[in-house]
């Protein structure tokens, strides 16, 4: 039985460590990215994946009882609540930002780039068929 306890410690500790590392990546992303709509992407990762990993690790520690069930409920609730709050925040940002286009300028260039890439690909394909 002693072995089982040690295995539980190692598995739970690894999961909890994964959760902490994901929180760390989230923090890095929030400080690295430049705009709210990009930062939201990093923040949502911690809301779902980070807390799921941490709470699954804590579930392994606590064993089979009501505490585990409640932690599961927290994770499931956050899976539903986090996209809704992200959507509301994105709408808030889009509604209240008067010069949103300054942050989204690259989309036109990206579309042009994509068009150009498709054209090149078609050229290559036709060239390959001819050869």
């Amino acid at each position: 039985m002693e072995i089982l306890e040690w295995i539980r410690l190692i598995v739970g500790g690894a999961l909890l460590l994964c959760g902490l590392i994901i929180f760390l990546i989230e923090l890095y992303g929030v400080f690295h990215l430049k705009y709210v709509l990009n930062r939201m992407h990093a923040a949502a990762m911690g809301d779902t994946l980070g807390i799921s990993f941490s709470l699954v690790g804590l579930m392994v520690f606590s064993g089979l009882n009501f505490t585990t069930l409640k932690m599961m409920l927290i994770v499931i609730f956050l899976w539903f609540a986090s996209p809704v709050s992200s959507h509301l925040l994105a709408r808030l940002e889009v509604v209240t930002n008067e010069n949103l286009e300054n942050h989204c300028q690259n989309y036109a260039e990206l579309a042009e780039l994509e068009k150009e890439l498709n054209r090149e690909k078609e050229d290559e394909q036709t060239g390959g068929q001819e050869a």
Binding site: V36, A43, G50
Partner: peptide, 28 residues
């Protein structure tokens, strides 16, 4: 530091998530 209001709300939301993990650890 967040320059816009949405920045601050996102940061407070992240803090809430971390506090949740802290409370769960504290309960064990």
């Amino acid at each position: 530091r967040g320059p816009r209001v949405a920045d601050r709300i996102v940061a407070v939301n992240m803090m809430g998530t971390m506090v949740m993990v802290m409370i769960a650890v504290l309960s064990l």
